Simulated scan of single mutants.
Amino acid sequence: GAGGAGAAGGGRPVSTPGTRRIGYGDHPAQYAELTRPPGTPRGAAVVVHGGFWKPQYGIEYARPLVPSLVTAGWAVWAIEYRRGTGAADTLADVRAAIDALPDARPEDAGPVVGIGHSAGGHLVTWAAGGGGLTHVVSQAGVLDLRSAYELGLGGGAVEAFLGHPPGPADAAVDPIRQVPLAVPVWCVHGAADDVVPIGQSEAYVAAARSAGAVAELVRVAGDHFAVVDPDSPAWDRTLEILRAIPDEPAAG
């Protein structure tokens, strides 16, 4: 059987049977891993890993969530992307990977939910402004680049990502300055997160709601990594959000 949501826990490397690696470009980092449940999936979960956009953190940080999502009935599209070569490369890759999803699962309908952790929360929320996603779950996301820069998050990660301190010209890549999005956003954040403070999600939700968008702060117990621990109650909250999403995406 598929086992429980925590069946792949225990700190072992996770490999899910039936995962296909599919390239969306020529660079070695331009690929995604597609894992499908038995039967017709509820929809697709686009999983974007974090790591402050740094090259040493890769798709291995997304893989532990895959068995749980597949067990819940989702086709999972876990994406890798270029890191450490500049924001333009990273953002172009995330966009291209999302755009490649319909070709990877052409016969499937249903919602397409972006799920991103930390810097992946930034990337998936940013990407939702360009289409292809019907819902977003940002997990401890870096959603306010100016504040993140001022706080020195990730040891200067924002300045390294952009190539300069964030300024007015960076509004198009800063989620808090992109509101309102046309899709609902849930910001799941650990109250004890000392890597990306929960104020990042609080500020984003306040700005999004003020702009007329649908956004919800989901405060959970735990630290920066509790939200992506498949054995944690914090991860269960993300599964609850996914269960409540209608099977058919809204028209329009």
Score class of each variant (00 low, 15 high):
A221K: 07
A221L: 11
G222W: 00
G222E: 04
G222Q: 08
G222I: 01
D223M: 12
D223L: 11
H224G: 04
F225C: 11
F225D: 04
F225Q: 14
F225L: 14
F225Y: 15
A226Y: 02
V227K: 01
V227I: 14
V227W: 08
V227M: 07
V227N: 02
V228R: 01
V228Y: 02
V228W: 07
D229E: 10
D229G: 05
P230A: 10
D231T: 14
D231Y: 00
D231W: 07
S232C: 02
S232L: 05
P233I: 09
P233V: 12
P233K: 11
P233Y: 03
A234H: 05
A234Q: 06
A234E: 00
A234W: 13
W235Y: 13
W235S: 06
W235C: 00
W235H: 08
W235E: 11
D236H: 14
D236A: 15
D236W: 11
D236G: 15
R237L: 09
R237Q: 14
R237H: 12
T238H: 13
T238C: 03
T238G: 04
L239Q: 12
E240G: 14
E240S: 15
E240I: 13
E240R: 12
I241K: 04
I241L: 13
I241P: 00
I241G: 11
I241D: 10
L242T: 09
L242Y: 03
L242D: 04
R243A: 15
R243G: 12
R243Q: 12
A244K: 01
A244G: 13
I245Q: 01
I245N: 07
I245R: 08
P246S: 01
D247L: 13
D247F: 13
D247Q: 14
E248R: 05
E248D: 15
P249H: 07
A250Q: 00
A250T: 00
A251R: 01
A251T: 14
